[in-house]
Design a protein around this nucleic acid. Structure first.
Lengths: 135, 135
DNA sequence: ACTCGATATTGACGGCTGTCAATATCGATA
DNA sequence: TATCGATATTGACAGCCGTCAATATCGAGT
């Protein structure tokens, strides 16, 4: 299943627990972000003005072998965070639009100002409702 | 170094590339989120009304051995996402305030409406500036 | 067709990780 | 202090993961 579809039907963590299927899908994305090199690669792509990075730019921004960089790019691509396009000899990577934003929304706190928040106005966070004996 | 400190001095991915140290710190957090079980545990804690969950509640919400759950809780705690407090026989876990929000901000897209965004209003995302030959 | 530079794939290796059974620890209660 | 329930720790094992050297593929130019 595609990452974006999973993200779009996964509520924010602060809203309700994820079911097993959602968790499995989302975890794949976070696992991909769980490597320092991939995180840096992603930040290079995400912060690039044109939104596009040539592999060669990445390869010599890191002190890692070219196959290793290629491997990380593949991981980021397979999980649905990046896309690639070949132009002439060079391959360019860019963000898959939406995924970063959806991941961000998943972790976001419940909007303090309920002005434009996506949340239905439920659960005003009743302070300590279940203070009884746990079981 | 503590997770929150790292997060507080790490710019959003869309702003500028992470340096190696920031990436290493942040990646630890995402790595912890990169397991389906931990993600579900975290969502259970995050969505809990009182903000607190007893271990026993988690242990029998999953079909995993008690040591396994304990292990995952330890990982989430060591990485700085959860805290625990012992009360009587039971141990209660809660979110470390701020971390989820900071992680969310790290992944967030550049705020379209700069109304209440935490970002200083820089970088109007110049569209495609570097279109020249990659190298 | 041949060569060359850019990128991907393969195969191998050491280290990390998720899981469990067994055991230990820690509080409460008798 | 003896016991019991709740949680943590230990040790072991299979499987995954990051890295590299070697090699393959793919376009472009000659």
């Amino acid at each position: 299943m595609k990452l974006l579809e999973i993200l779009e039907c996964s509520p924010p963590l602060t809203r309700e627990p994820l079911d097993a299927e959602q968790a499995a899908g989302v975890a794949r994305a976070f696992k991909a972000l769980g490597d320092p090199v991939r995180l840096r690669i992603l930040s290079v792509v995400a912060s690039r003005a044109g939104g596009e990075v040539c592999v060669c730019d990445i390869t010599d921004a890191f002190e890692l072998s070219q196959p290793t960089i290629s491997h990380h790019l593949k991981v980021l691509k397979e999980v649905g965070l990046l896309t690639s396009e070949r132009r002439a000899s060079w391959v360019h990577y860019r963000l898959v639009p939406g995924t970063l934003g959806e991941l961000s929304a998943l972790l976001a706190l419940p909007a303090s100002g309920p002005a434009s928040g996506p949340a239905g106005g439920s659960a005003p966070s009743l302070p300590a409702a279940a203070a009884a004996v746990p079981r």
